[in-house]
């Protein structure tokens, strides 16, 4: 049992739903059309708010879960791990992301979740509540499906990065992606945002050692493409960084007009 789970959960059942579902709804509406009643049903959701300490695992590989985790603040990551402890982060989740919505359909998760940032706050939403929502409102089910498909699209792009982009391209690409996602989550601009991640874990996302990653970040800085000051990320020349990473945000599926209702 990880200590994270032993932390006292703040049971906050709010009559009008937990406020954390507002950014989640906003994320869904970037890709799906939901009517007033459906939107209200999502906003009325409740969950248990939990603070996770850095490095802590929220869900461990092989664990059977009965909840999904909505990121309120900070960042969470999905990872795979080798026997010697080496980790590869396969997804980073920003506030407003329901980072393991897929566990609703496959509750025995093979992908563990960890806190990436110094302070991570999540809301644990009962699968029971989500299933009820999906069964009552098919359009919400479609929105969830679209959301997990978009997450899958990001994972596919990461495979391309780890397999084919060199260290410099890969780093440039990740910073561009997180910039766009933070901007769309309403947390800064793509050229200026806070990245509350720990460097070692950022290196785990890039498939590099932290030393090598820092060398790459320094070289990007020398070229005037990326400035990292503690947690603050500045991208002085977006087009140049995007060109370096061959970043085209289309795979994020965020800029499409929401599909008309079927």
């Amino acid at each position: 049992m990880s200590k994270a789970a032993a932390l006292p959960d703040q049971e906050e059942l709010m009559p009008n739903g937990h406020p954390a579902f507002r950014p989640f709804l906003r994320r869904l509406l970037q890709r799906s059309v939901l009517n007033e009643e459906e939107q209200q049903a999502i906003l009325s959701l409740n969950g248990r708010e939990v603070e996770i300490e850095p490095h802590r695992d929220i869900v461990r590989p092989g664990e059977l879960t009965d909840f999904s985790c909505l990121v309120v603040s900070g960042m969470a990551a999905r990872f795979g791990q080798l026997r010697d402890g080496q980790r590869q982060i396969t997804a980073i989740h920003v506030p407003g992301d329901m980072c393991d919505l897929y566990s609703l359909m496959l509750p025995k998760v093979e992908w563990a979740l960890q806190a990436l940032s110094a302070r991570l706050t999540i809301v644990k939403v009962a699968h029971r509540d989500l299933l009820e929502l999906v069964r009552t409102y098919p359009a919400i089910g479609e929105a969830f499906w679209r959301d997990t498909t978009a997450d899958g699209s990001i994972v596919a792009q990461w495979v391309v990065s780890v397999g084919r982009r060199d260290a410099r391209m890969r780093t440039a690409h990740l910073f561009c992606e997180i910039g766009v996602r933070m901007e769309r989550a309403g947390l800064g601009r793509r050229t200026d945002f806070d990245l509350p991640a720990i460097q070692t874990q950022l290196a785990d996302a890039l498939g590099m050692t932290p030393v090598h990653m820092n060398r790459v970040i320094r070289s990007l800085r020398q070229d005037g493409l990326l400035i990292l000051k503690g947690r603050e990320v500045q991208i002085p020349d977006w087009d140049a960084l995007a060109a370096t990473g061959q970043f085209d945000g289309g795979y994020l599926e965020m800029d499409m007009a929401p599909l008309a209702r079927l």
């Binding site: 990880s2 590989p61 791990q81 402890g85 080496q86 563990a112």
Partner: peptide, 12 residues
């Protein structure tokens, strides 16, 4: 399962 001894460290 522990990542790079992290949990053991936190556990002291």
């Amino acid at each position: 399962m522990c990542g790079r001894g992290t949990d053991l460290r936190v556990a002291g």
